[in-house]
Design a protein around this nucleic acid. Structure first.
Lengths: 141, 141
DNA sequence: ACATACCTGACTAAAATGGTCAAGTTTAGA
DNA sequence: TCTAAACTTGACCATTTTAGTCAGGTATGT
């Protein structure tokens, strides 16, 4: 299962974006500075977010990115999917129509991973960018 | 977040073990053959399972491993913990008492990962080896 | 025209993964 | 008592993934 910094950065950047894009397009440079994420890396991430129609880009001076949907309609599952964070649990090697590991049967734990995957996906499907915004205060420690 | 083959192998091996250890100690060689997991790798895994008192070893000829607890008392969370599958989501770099990323604040998404972690752990805490055994038939495809 | 900001693809150091290999020790059973 | 089966330990390693960097673009508002 993968769930790494790339996904975290994507979420952080989008929350940041959502907080400011109603005024102006937000440049990656600003997000980079505010969130402490490398600009070059952000560009990779936003390229994917754009392909998946989560954000729109506006080129040129004063340009930047804007959300392409209502924050309430952007679920975490969409974000992770966009940046290739596959919320997939361990795969059985060479799983095929025939079964796991080339055998004609499913392996003992096969159903378990299916269940887990559903469990995690449900969490992400029920969580929108809007939910995070409501909780957006950077709480003091 | 890590959730890899090592965890899957550990679970597969323990289910296998649970099915046969009431008769005799089960050798890793048998598990290796039945489950298609490298013997050397199994040894690494069982070394950790033993340290965490999930299995007992019996040395010598006809030796092998035996469960050290009732299958109902072995939760998946115990297994993953034993083999260092940390069910931890992405960490904020250098998180400290002071906050995330060296700042005095928690990062925007901090609570999210905490919630997710709890969500996944709940799943694993409620799932025991016994639950898997009940479902143990290698269902035909 | 030119600075700002997006866009693209190649490249890479470091870490994690999924093992292998070698050299033991222990003990049941012949 | 000898020996083979089985556990034990630790070093090692190839491959893949991660988390970026770097170097060049292209588009556009002012």
């Amino acid at each position: 299962m993968k769930l790494t910094s790339k996904g975290r950065y994507a979420v952080m950047a989008l929350v940041d974006l959502a907080r400011f894009d109603s005024i102006n397009p937000v440049s990656l440079r600003d997000i980079s500075l505010r969130q402490g994420i490398s600009l070059d890396y952000l560009e990779q991430i936003f390229s994917k977010l754009k392909k998946n129609e989560i954000v729109k880009s506006i080129r040129g001076t004063q340009g930047g990115y804007v959300l392409n949907k209502n924050p309430n309609d952007i679920k975490l599952t969409n974000i992770f999917h966009a940046v290739d964070e596959k919320v997939k649990t361990v795969q059985c090697k060479r799983e095929s129509k025939r079964g796991c590991n080339g055998k004609a049967t499913k392996c003992i734990t096969h159903n378990l991973w299916d269940e887990l995957e559903t469990h995690i996906n449900t969490f992400f499907e029920n969580k929108s960018l809007d939910d995070l915004l409501k909780n957006k205060k950077e709480t003091r420690v």
